[in-house]
Simulated scan of single mutants.
Amino acid sequence: MLSSEKFTAFLKDRVTITSGQTFLRQSLLINHNSEINNEIMKRTLYILALFVTLSAMRSDLPAYKIFNVKGKSVEFGKLVKAASDVDIVLFGELHNNPVCHWLQLELTRALYEQHRDKLMLGAEMFEADNALIINEYLSKKVNDRNFESEARLWPNYKTDYKPILVYARDNGIPFIATNIPRRYASLVNREGFEGLSVLSPEALQYIAPLPPAYDPELPGYKGMIEMMGGAGGHVNENLPKAQAIKDATMAHFILKNFSSGKLFIHFHGTYHSDNYEGIVWYLKNQNPDLKILTIKSAEQASVDSLEEANSGKADFTLVIPETMTKTH
């Protein structure tokens, strides 16, 4: 048997060991919980920082805003939904603005997902007498190098228009060259519509039927004359006619290739469809029942609200900061 002294010593040792184990377990548990809490805290702070950063990007420095005809800010999805319910979408761009070209591509992607083989594209930047080589490019009979060296392309083609043309090629979407060859627009600028009457039948196939309808009192055309006069320069009465023959020819080739049940998206400088004039006027003049949606592009010092000068000029207005970098 153990003596009382040895038994007491044994109990003290057991208490000391047990207390030590308990302390060790508690310490490990506390440390483990601390590590979990630290990890949770780190992740929480990361998510919070990311949220603040994204919120700042969205609210403090937005790259664009879209406004409807009433001047209310709307999401891109609203534009897509409205565009999917019409016959023709006229997307007026600022030629050197990267946001315009990016949204043109994104709108094309979104509408292609809905309409597939019913979607058609066309653009001011491609002249009607280039239709053959464009179709050869779309059918992959001509490579990029030959196409870009032989077709008459704008200086910003590679950055701004090539992505849409390539998307059309890769997805089998028709792409129509709608604009009048620039040499014939220059002829109108010098000699009026009469100058076109001496062209050959072959040349005339690239132009809207003559004589084109023309209303010099339309504010857009009238404004061109007033602008020249206001600047103290020589007033060329043919200048708005040169603009009109472009509008008429683009409308002509849109209608020539459009058919009921299709959706045609056309890209052009915003002036060609602002105030529902230009291309819109010629389309409606030939087919009043067409459902047309117009998009205007504008630059403003702030995109927080739609300025009065840009209000009511289109069904949707794309507003971009005037400090946005340019493509050329």
Rank of each mutant, 00 (worst) to 15 (best):
T249D: 08
I225Q: 09
N287H: 11
G220S: 10
E277T: 03
S260G: 14
H234E: 15
I265S: 00
E237L: 14
L263E: 05
F267R: 09
T270N: 08
H272V: 09
E217Q: 15
V280E: 04
E226M: 06
H266A: 04
G220A: 10
M224I: 11
D289S: 10
G223V: 06
F258E: 09
G230E: 01
L255M: 15
W281H: 11
D247Q: 01
Q286R: 13
I245F: 12
V280T: 08
P219D: 12
K262W: 12
N257G: 05
P219M: 01
Y271M: 14
Q243T: 01
I225C: 00
G232M: 05
G261H: 09
W281T: 11
N285A: 14
I265N: 02
V235C: 07
G230T: 02
S259P: 02
I254H: 03
L290V: 05
L290G: 04
Q243I: 01
F253N: 09
N238M: 12
L255W: 13
K246H: 09
K246C: 11
G233K: 03
L263I: 10
A248F: 13
L263F: 03
F258R: 06
G269L: 13
N275Q: 12
Y282F: 15
G278S: 09
A242N: 01
G223A: 08
D247W: 04
L283V: 08
N238S: 10
K222V: 00
I245G: 08
K262S: 14
M224E: 04
I245H: 07
A231C: 08
H234F: 15
A251P: 00
G223E: 06
K222I: 00
L255S: 13
I225L: 15
G230H: 08
N285D: 15
M228T: 00
A248S: 15
M228Y: 02
